[in-house]
């Protein structure tokens, strides 16, 4: 590389001009200043290059997972793949598949993919009496926690945790039912599934409550078992939760914008819309 130095004199040879200049015009500030800046030639440190290449590697991975297939009509990268799955199945969604997806998107940050939580911070779900409905814990408590959140100290498998779980009421009844069904049957847990109808029932009963549950509040509510009326078989639509399936919609035109026949299965649909809409949806 060129050794970039400031040649002190060369390049200025207009001596006539210099002579014409009034010496007083060359101010003290100009006379005392340093020569024009130059560049040194220290090499780029190796550790810096290593850091940069790891960032570039991460960037490639991130883009691969979040590009939404570089399509102009995919607005939500995390749903891009999900929509593809749903289209491939072209049928009702197994609650455990939907549940796993909901769990991956919302729960793994605290409870981890292993369901073991983080000791001292976030309680485990594996073998947890809260999840399986053992002891004083009922399935109703579990649903209530998802709908309103949980705050303050809790005892799980003999350990104490003091943290806050946010509310998940923005999830639909189907999504909550699916994720609960998933955590009750994964990692060796074996508790019966929970139906969307049961979630809806509890959601309707607890609309008045605004603040998160506390452990002792729940203890005062008698434990219930979730009704086993809705079998885990994916074919059964959750009663009451999908009000206007497209097949039945001619009877109720325009009043129910929730089920749009034109919903395309390839679209990055919010996943709960898929089970009810897809059977009658035209192939895009």
């Amino acid at each position: 590389m060129t050794a970039p130095t400031q040649p002190p004199d060369e390049g200025f040879n207009e001596k006539d001009q210099r002579n014409e200049m009034d010496v007083a015009e060359v101010h003290g500030s100009i006379l005392r200043e340093q020569s024009e800046p130059r560049s040194g030639a220290e090499p780029v440190p190796l550790w810096l290059l290593t850091v940069f290449f790891s960032i570039i590697f991460w960037a490639g991975l991130y883009l691969a997972y979040n590009s939404g297939g570089f399509r102009a009509d995919v607005f939500d990268p995390t749903h891009g793949a999900a929509a593809g799955d749903a289209a491939a199945q072209a049928g009702p969604v197994d609650p455990r598949v939907l549940g796993k997806r909901v769990f991956t998107q919302n729960c793994v940050v605290c409870h981890q993919t292993t369901g073991l939580g983080i000791p001292g911070q976030f309680p485990p779900l594996v073998g947890s009496e809260w999840v399986l409905g053992q002891g004083w814990h009922g399935d109703n408590h579990l649903v209530k926690i998802l709908l309103k959140g949980l705050q303050g100290p809790v005892q799980v498998k003999g350990a104490t945790f003091n943290n806050a779980m946010p509310t998940w009421s923005q999830l639909t009844d189907e999504q909550i039912a699916a994720v609960l069904t998933y955590i009750r049957s994964e990692w060796g847990n074996a508790a019966p599934p929970i139906s969307a109808a049961y979630v809806k029932e509890i959601r309707d009963k607890t609309t008045a409550r605004t603040e998160p549950w506390k452990s002792k509040d729940l203890q005062d509510i008698p434990a219930e078992k979730a009704p086993a009326e809705a079998p885990p078989a994916p074919a059964a639509p959750a009663p009451g939760a999908s009000p206007a399936a497209p097949g039945a919609s001619p009877a109720a035109p325009a009043t129910s914008p929730s089920a749009v026949p034109s919903a395309s299965p390839a679209a990055p649909a919010a996943s709960p819309a898929v089970p009810s809409a897809s059977p009658a949806a035209p192939a895009a």
Binding site: D73, V74, F75, T172, D173, E174, K200, R203, D204, G240, A241, S242, P243, A244, S256, P257, S258, A259, V260, S262, A263, S264, A267, P268, A269, A270, P272, A273, S276, A277
Partner: peptide, 15 residues
């Protein structure tokens, strides 16, 4: 903006 679009359907109604 409360109408459905193919790329952004409305969620199922919650009663």
């Amino acid at each position: 903006r409360n109408y459905p679009l193919p790329e952004a359907p409305l969620p199922p109604a919650k009663k």
